[in-house]
């Protein structure tokens, strides 16, 4: 992954920065220039609360090459208290136990490596809260 592309995503990936529309309160993650709900253009930056609920999930058994060592792993769409939804891996648990309705916290983790000599790519993964 070329470094400029990675750098641009750091605010949303490292700090969960999102945008709240001043017109309709819709929170878009990552922030957008135009609100996907009402097309408003006045956007206020907010940080998502690092927790949420699983909306839907799967367990990946046949992964992309970069994730070969991790399979099988659980992935889920997680909704935060602000109503924003993120695609994340769900870790530190038995993958098959990750089901809709599960409460999770979002933690800063290593996501992938850019080949053997490239940069380490970070972001958030979900961890079940019991």
């Amino acid at each position: 992954m070329p470094s400029p592309r990675y750098t641009r995503e750091i605010p949303s990936r490292y700090r969960l920065e999102a945008g709240r529309c001043k017109g309709c309160d819709k929170v878009a993650y990552p922030a957008r220039r135009v609100c996907p709900s009402c097309r408003g253009k006045e956007i206020q930056m907010v940080n998502l609360t690092p927790k949420g609920k699983v909306v839907t999930s799967t367990v990946i058994h046949v992964p992309p090459d970069d994730f070969l060592m991790e399979a099988p792993y659980a992935m889920a769409i997680v909704e935060t208290p602000e109503g924003a939804r993120l695609m994340t891996q769900v870790v530190d648990c038995e993958p098959s136990t990750v089901l809709p309705g599960m409460d999770v916290s979002l933690e800063f983790r290593l996501i992938r490596k850019e080949g053997k000599g490239g940069i380490l790519c970070y972001g958030h993964k979900a961890v079940p809260v019991f």
């Binding site: 995503e9 990552p30 909306v55 839907t56 999930s57 799967t58 990946i60 046949v62 992964p63 992309p64 970069d66 994730f67 991790e70 792993y73 992935m75 889920a76 769409i77 993120l86 695609m87 994340t88 891996q89 089901l99 809709p100 996501i111 992938r112 790519c121 972001g123």
Partner: peptide, 24 residues
């Protein structure tokens, strides 16, 4: 690419999530 593929999801994975939501 930035919101889905980066995190390791595949196309079967996306449709699997649709399937699980439908089952639920």
């Amino acid at each position: 690419q930035e919101l889905e593929v980066y995190h390791g999801v595949t196309f079967p994975g996306l449709y699997a999530m649709i399937a699980r939501a439908h089952m639920q």
